[in-house]
């Protein structure tokens, strides 16, 4: 039991992932969809941070004189910095498209857009 709870970071990851996914699928409002998408991506960031964590470790900065220090794995953190940039650009582009949809259709509700587009 404790072992399962010990993985709580991963549980949070899965939970946030699912909430985000649900929002993307179930919400008709385009902004809310994008929010869901952001949550989905954030969940993955959380996963990467978690897996780079080493118990009792500090940030991976080499210092003179410090010998037997344990460091966290820096690579996933670097990766996720990149992924965050990608995520931000995606959200920005998504919002830009929503703005143009609003200009073109006068609404950002999926149902109304479908109606306006015709069959």
């Amino acid at each position: 039991m404790l072992e399962i709870l010990g993985y709580y970071n991963y549980w949070v990851f899965a939970l946030v992932l699912m909430i985000g996914f649900y929002a993307v699928v179930a919400r008709g409002n385009l902004i809310k969809k994008l929010l869901g998408l952001s949550m989905l991506q954030s969940a993955v960031f959380l996963m990467y941070i978690t897996l780079s964590k080493v118990e009792g470790a500090t940030a991976p900065i080499l210092q003179k004189g410090v010998e037997d220090q344990i460091y966290s794995n820096p690579l996933p953190q670097v990766l996720i910095l990149t992924a965050i940039v990608v995520g931000v650009s995606t959200t920005a582009l998504g919002l830009a498209i929503v703005v143009r949809i609003k200009e073109a259709y006068g609404t950002i509700e999926e149902q109304d857009i479908l109606k306006a587009s015709g069959p």
Binding site: L40, Q41, V44, P76, L93, I101, L114
Partner: peptide
């Protein structure tokens, strides 16, 4: 094209995110 591209963006990003999870 706008709603179409929005749909593509959502689905494409989900695909990429899944891929990212797998890589992790």
């Amino acid at each position: 094209a706008l709603p179409a591209v929005f749909k593509y963006l959502i689905m494409g990003t989900i695909g990429a995110t899944f891929y990212l999870i797998g890589i992790g």
